[in-house]
Amino acid sequence: MSDFWQALRAHTPARIGQERHGEAPGTRDRLAFATAHAAARDAVHQPLDVPALVAELATVDGLAPACVVASAAPDRATYLTRPDLGRRPRDPVPALTPGAEGDPDLLVVLADGLSALAVERHAAGVLRALLPLLPASTRLAPPVVATQARVALADHVGLAWRARLALVLIGERPGLTTADSLGAYLTWAPRPGVADAARNCVSNIHPPHGLDHATAARTIASLVQGATLLGATGVALKEGRAALG
């Protein structure tokens, strides 16, 4: 690429200034695009390594052993075409052994979503940074690892376990520049049928280019605190924060 375009690329991640060979870009640009698309495609189709994630979660202080829940979508092709199946569990949610202290304050669900890679790389790191920021009295449900899952699957688990608040850490749709971006969704009083507008989202968690784990954890912790004070998530919580700021 010419120096002229090289300098301008400092201002944008866009693929500006590609060479012309006839009407077509050069071979390097052609293969760079193919490489990025390949990474995104592989991220969409790579299955979540469930045993490895469960083992990693066992090393996070403060978490009970993880519970694995499969969605009603039997495979990736079905998952991609039937969002309704990814939103509910295949089998009835197993009963939670009632703790002496009462219902859980927070349920954490780690879902593959559209990028298992994102969950494998970032979910445990975010939890490690987040848990120490929560009040010591917070009652945590056992973490759930969910496969072929969308955000709303947590609503079923949350209702069955009577959780006050659900946090879903889920792989976001891979782009050409980033295949491992994690999103975090918070839902107060999770139950099937919750509107998307009643959730709060922290997206683009993918260090080094996106949000780092510590920053994401601080944002999530402040949302947890706000939701607990307000007794709600969604637009009301977002607006409340804006008013405070």
Partner: peptide, 25 residues
């Protein structure tokens, strides 16, 4: 048309400026 067929804001792939040269030719 977007640079190099890659929309870096919306996160999808469309046709490129170069593709337009091809299509017109």
């Amino acid at each position: 048309t977007v640079p190099g067929a890659d929309d870096v804001m919306l996160g999808y792939q469309s046709t490129s400026y170069h593709d337009a040269l091809y299509a017109r030719r």
